[in-house]
Write a protein that binds this DNA or RNA. Structure first.
Lengths: 143, 143
DNA sequence: AAATTAATTAAAGTTTACTTTAACTTTATA
DNA sequence: TATAAAGTTAAAGTAAACTTTAATTAATTT
């Protein structure tokens, strides 16, 4: 296959990624400091990000939105990259992930409650709106 | 109806609520300072919480777990309690809640991604486990 | 080649959400 | 009724997650 280059983007500078993910370059550097991501470097020492780094960052942001702390996210990443030499070690990690998966599933139920809270706020406004409209109509008729 | 008292609990001290909701009394005081809750007081100035305060606290905690900041939660509560005198005002508030409800709904999709991330970590471990077991069996046979 | 523009680091600063402390008062228990 | 346990406030302290700054170097544009 000769000379294929569909100009598909495969590397990113820090600010390209920052723009795309709507976070600041310093946040990305901060995550690196915390050991959550390890980009390559150019000859001149500037960070170069590949698809996998972008995917990793997206995962970090999802974890954050879920409510995991950066330390927790770091723990997961650490386990993912760990050399697993013993069945026991694997079992413990599996249990760790089972717990996290359950947390995620429980969270779904909470979202339902949250939605109910918000809908009930909205309905309260609806009722108030109908009252107001009734009053306004009365005023209009009597005018 | 004479003398009914099913000893059903209708008031709480700060530490009773704190214990039940698994937060510290100071957190509850902190939420009060932020204007998120307003308990009654005893003659001796101690806080007394009713069912509605308990419900309010639960809502605050749900909001927090969702990722709303205390300021955002305060904004919602403020709108709930606001005197709505104008249709316009109501419309703006409705739009506010519509946006929040959409956020909650979008979050459900993210939970699915999060779960996928975690499941894929787990499967990686599964594969590693099978490799390890195969190797161990070989060793056993050759021993 | 000169001048922007973007990147680098280390360190200090900021915000949010609490927690702790201290000095004191109220309520419950022995 | 004395003692202990729980509550009160204001103010200072803390941890996490960034952000800002400053001094410097690299890459891009004109």
């Amino acid at each position: 296959m000769a000379n294929r280059d569909y100009t598909a983007k495969t590397t990113y500078t820090i600010s390209e990624l920052a723009d795309e993910l709507e976070i600041s370059p310093s946040s990305i550097r901060f995550y690196e400091e915390k050991g959550l991501i390890n980009p390559q470097r150019t000859a001149g020492n500037q960070r170069v990000y590949l698809k996998k780094h972008r995917a990793r960052l997206k995962m970090i942001l999802r974890g954050k939105r879920f409510g995991f702390s950066l330390d927790e996210i770091g723990e997961m990443i650490g386990m993912e990259n760990m050399q697993m030499h013993e069945i026991d070690q694997i079992d413990r990690s599996q249990m760790f992930f089972d717990k996290k998966i359950e947390e995620v599933r429980n969270r779904r139920a909470e979202l339902d409650f949250m939605e109910k809270d918000l809908l009930s706020f909205k309905q309260k406004l609806d009722r108030r709106r109908m009252e107001l409209e009734a009053t306004d109509n009365k005023k209009l008729r009597s005018a």
